[in-house]
Amino acid sequence: MSKSSDEVKKFTGYHATIIIVSFFAVVITVNMIMARFALSTFSGTVVDNSYVASQKYNEWLKQARDQKAYGWTISPALRKSGKASIAITTKDGLPLNDMSMTAVAEHPIGQSDPFELNFVQAETGEYHSTRTLPEGRWKLKIIITQGDKSMRVVRDIW
C-alpha cells in the first residue's frame, strides 16, 4: 500500500518541540542583540540621585533663566589639531572676552577616567584646550565664568 499525495502528515510531539525550541531561540537571540546595543550605546546616568535632583530643580531653572539672559552663544565643540575648540559670542555676535573656561571631559560610557581641561583664548576669539583630547567621543561639561556671571553647558565632541 502506497501513500497518496493527499494524505496529511501527523503533527507529533517532535514537531511541537522543534517549534517551541525555535521560538525561544529566536526570542533569546533578539533579546541578547538588543541588550548588547543598549549597553554599548548607553551614555551614562543623567543624575546620580533623582531625589537630590528633584530638590535642586527650581534652582536649576533659575540658573537656566539667568544663563539665557546673558545672551551668550556657545558653538558646538570641535576638534582642531587634537584639542577642543569652542567659540563663545555675546548678544552682539562679538567674541566673549575676559572670562575663564574649564571643562571636565568624560567618556560617555566610562571607558576612561574623567579629566579636567583648561581653555585659553586664541586670536580668532575661539577658546582652545591647553591639553590634547584623546581620540573618540567625549562629553565636555563646561563652566564659563565672567565676573559674577557663570554658565554651565554640556557639549559632545568626536
Rank of each mutant, 00 (worst) to 15 (best):
A84C: 05
K83L: 08
Y70V: 02
K83R: 14
V47F: 02
F23D: 03
D66L: 14
N49F: 01
A77N: 11
G82W: 09
N31C: 07
Y57N: 08
Q55C: 03
R65L: 14
R36W: 15
S81W: 04
Q67E: 15
T89Y: 04
I88S: 09
I19S: 04
S81V: 11
V52E: 06
L39A: 11
V27C: 06
V21M: 04
S54V: 00
M34K: 06
N31L: 08
T41P: 01
S75C: 09
T89Q: 04
S85Q: 14
R36H: 11
F42E: 01
V52K: 05
S81H: 08
R65N: 11
G71K: 05
E59M: 07
Q55P: 00
L61F: 06
S40T: 13
N31G: 12
M32T: 05
S75F: 11
N58I: 06
A77E: 11
I20G: 05
I18D: 04
R36A: 09
A69K: 10
S22R: 03
E59K: 10
V52H: 00
N31F: 10
S81P: 00
E59F: 07
L78V: 15
N58Q: 14
S75Q: 08
A69Q: 11
I18K: 09
P76N: 15
S85G: 01
W72R: 13
Q55A: 10
F42K: 02
A87L: 14
K68W: 09
L61N: 12
S50N: 07
S22N: 05
F24L: 10
K80H: 09
Y51E: 03
W72A: 10
I86H: 07
Q55R: 08
Y57A: 13
Q67T: 13
L61P: 00
K56R: 14
S40V: 06
I20M: 04
F37W: 12
A77V: 15
